[in-house]
């Protein structure tokens, strides 16, 4: 899959680790920092997370981008704890939240979408025992990536049609024809999957 998504091409330390290693490390840090529950540990992890960005070759503005979505939560926690709780809890909660979001984001920025999906498919492999075929999981993921631009184009033309007919104020009249069109699209795609011998109707 050539879809880049949020991946930032580069070659720092984090790029050399496998997706599985990064995910396991992230989980471990997450459990540790919450279990320890100390403001010092949290603040230390936050400092480490911020330093990780330049170390991994990621631009520091990525750190600021995360703050943009998170500051109202941080403000609410800080204010609430400062008034009703204790300031050390405010430090612990805010730095813990920010540190984990930054670390998780660093994993995403340094891992290709395709590699992460391969990892998910690998993790889903035990489901084969319940009749989930790994090939079909991969096929549905690829079909979805292929369908997003098609559905986006259908959405745009539905918006145009809705405006052209002057139907403003009843947005469900916009979505209904779009969905009928999606059913037809899926019908034709399913037929093509069978015709091309890629997915037979037979197995579960």
């Amino acid at each position: 899959m050539n879809t880049l998504g949020l991946y930032v091409p580069g070659e720092g330390v984090l790029y050399r680790l496998t997706a599985g290693a990064k995910l396991a490390g992230l989980l471990l840090l997450c459990v540790a920092v919450i279990a320890l529950g100390s403001p010092w540990v949290s603040a230390g992890l936050l400092a480490a997370a911020v330093l990780l960005y330049p170390a991994a070759g990621l631009p520091l503005r990525r750190v600021l981008a995360i703050l943009r979505g998170l500051w109202p939560f941080l403000l609410a926690i800080g204010f609430f704890q400062a008034v009703f709780g204790d300031p050390s809890a405010a430090v612990r909660l805010c730095s813990q939240l920010l540190a984990l979001v930054l670390l998780a984001n660093a994993v995403t920025l340094t891992t290709r979408v395709g590699e992460m999906l391969d990892l998910f498919e690998h993790l889903a492999r035990p489901l084969a025992r319940f009749g989930v075929s790994p090939d079909r999981v991969a096929l549905v993921l690829a079909l979805t990536v292929r369908s997003i631009p098609m559905v986006a184009a259908a959405w745009r033309s539905a918006v145009e049609g809705y405006r052209a007919r002057g139907l403003s104020g009843r947005p469900y009249l916009l979505v209904t024809p779009l969905i009928v069109q999606l059913f037809r699209m899926a019908e034709a795609t399913g037929e093509a999957l069978v015709a091309r011998g890629i997915d037979e109707d037979g197995h579960v």
Binding site: G131, R136, L139, V140, L143, T144, R146, S147, I148, M150, V151, A152, W155, I179, L182, F183, M185, A186, E187, T189, G190, E191, L193, V194, I198, D199, E200, D201, H203, V204
Partner: peptide, 25 residues
């Protein structure tokens, strides 16, 4: 009705794409 047909896989993909388009657009 048992299992999922090729059409069902296509429906799953198309509706996953619809959720994506609705959240971005």
């Amino acid at each position: 009705y048992r299992g999922l047909t090729a059409r069902d896989l296509a429906l799953i993909a198309v509706f996953a794409a619809l959720i994506a388009v609705l959240s971005v657009s």
